[in-house]
C-alpha cells in the first residue's frame, strides 16, 4: 500500500509542475505581442536612417568616414552578442553560441584577436568561461521594455575602439524572430557599414523586409545643405544608426525569447501530461494488485479454516 501512496505523491508533484509550465507558457504568449509591437515601432527610425546615410554617403564623395571604409588588414574583431537574461527558453541561446563559436575559432585560427560585448546575462556567463576571448563590455537586465539608453555604453565601447583603429570588423549576433515557431540565430556585419546604393538594391531584390520601401533619389545633381558640415552630420548619423541597428537586434531577440519560451513550456506541459498518464496507470495497477492479493489471502485463509 505504501507504494500506492508514493506514486500518488509523484503524480501530485508532476501536476504542480504542469501548473507552473502552463502559467509560464501563457505569460510568454502574451509577452510576444508586446515585443512584436516594440519591434514594429522601431522600424521607421531605422528605415529613415538608412535612407539618410545612403544619401549622404552618395552625396559627399570627398569625405570618407572610417565606418564606411573597408580595411584590408584584420587584426582584431568584435562580436556584439545579444542573449536573454533568463533561461527556460529551449535552445535559443545555446543554438546561437553554437553558431558563434566556429566563427570565432576561425578568426583565432588566423591569428585574429576576438573581443566580445555581451548583452544579456546568458552571453556574459557563457563567454567569460571561454579562453582567449576578451570581454570588452557588457550590459544585462534590460527588462521587458529595453530602452536605447541602456545600450549606449556598450555600443560606444565598440565604436570608440573601431575609430581608434583598435578594431577592424564588428559583428552583431542575435536571434532573428521569423515567427513564433522559428527563431534564426543570425550574425550580421555591423562595421564597416556595407551600405552603399548597390548593396541596398541587392537587399531589396532579395525581398528583405528591413530594406523595403527605401528609395534613393537617383539624380546626382543635388546635395544636402549641411548644417554645420557634411562630416559632422555624417558622423552623428552613423553613430545613431549603429545604435538603432543594435537596438533592433535586441528587440528581435526579446520577441524570440518569449516565442522560444512559450514553445519550450508547451512541450514541458505536454510531457508532464504524459508522465501523469503513465503514473496514473501504474497507480491503478498496483492498487488492483493489492486488492487481488488481499482477496486471495482472505479466500486462502477461509479455505484453511
Amino acid at each position: 500500500m505504501a507504494s500506492g501512496r508514493e506514486i500518488k505523491t509523484k503524480i501530485k508533484s508532476t501536476q504542480n509542475m504542469r501548473k507552473v509550465t502552463r502559467a509560464l507558457e501563457m505569460v510568454s504568449a502574451s509577452k510576444i505581442r508586446k515585443a512584436q509591437d516594440l519591434m514594429k515601432a522601431s522600424r521607421p527610425y531605422a528605415r529613415s536612417m538608412r535612407k539618410v546615410i545612403a544619401h549622404v554617403a552618395q552625396a559627399s564623395t570627398d569625405f570618407k568616414h572610417p565606418f564606411l571604409v573597408e580595411r584590408d588588414n584584420v587584426a582584431r574583431v568584435a562580436y556584439i552578442v545579444v542573449s536573454t537574461d533568463r533561461g527556460l527558453c529551449g535552445g535559443l541561446n545555446s543554438n546561437m553560441f553554437r553558431r558563434l563559436l566556429p566563427a570565432i575559432q576561425e578568426w583565432q585560427g588566423k591569428g585574429v584577436q576576438v573581443d566580445v560585448v555581451a548583452i544579456g546575462q546568458k552571453a556574459l556567463q557563457f563567454f567569460r568561461r571561454i579562453k582567449g576571448i576578451n570581454l570588452a563590455g557588457s550590459v544585462t537586465h534590460l527588462g521587458e521594455r529595453p530602452k536605447l539608453e541602456q545600450l549606449i555604453g556598450v555600443i560606444k565601447v565598440v565604436l570608440d575602439a573601431y575609430s581608434a583603429n583598435g578594431l577592424d570588423r564588428v559583428f552583431l549576433a542575435y536571434n532573428d524572430f521569423v515567427n513564433t515557431m522559428t527563431q534564426k540565430p543570425t550574425i550580421d556585419a555591423l562595421l564597416p557599414l556595407p551600405l552603399v546604393a548597390a548593396e541596398l538594391e541587392a537587399h531589396q531584390a532579395a525581398g528583405e523586409s528591413a530594406y523595403a520601401g527605401i528609395k534613393l533619389e537617383q539624380a546626382h545633381d543635388w546635395d544636402y545643405i549641411y548644417e554645420p558640415d557634411a562630416q559632422t552630420v555624417l558622423e552623428h548619423v552613423l553613430g545613431r544608426y549603429i545604435e538603432s541597428v543594435v537596438y533592433q537586434g535586441v528587440l528581435e531577440n526579446l520577441a524570440s525569447e518569449h516565442a522560444a519560451r512559450m514553445v519550450a513550456m508547451k512541450s514541458a506541459s505536454d510531457n508532464a501530461n504524459k508522465v501523469i498518464d503513465t503514473l496514473t496507470l501504474v497507480y491503478n495497477k498496483t492498487r488492483q494488485a493489492a486488492i487481488t492479493q488481499e482477496i486471495s489471502e482472505i479466500v486462502g485463509g477461509a479455505a484453511a479454516v
Partner: peptide
C-alpha cells in the same frame, strides 16, 4: 555609460 559597460564586464570576469 561606456565606462559602466566596461566595468560590468570586468566585474563579471
Amino acid at each position: 555609460a561606456a565606462q559602466r559597460a566596461k566595468k560590468e564586464a570586468e566585474d563579471a570576469l
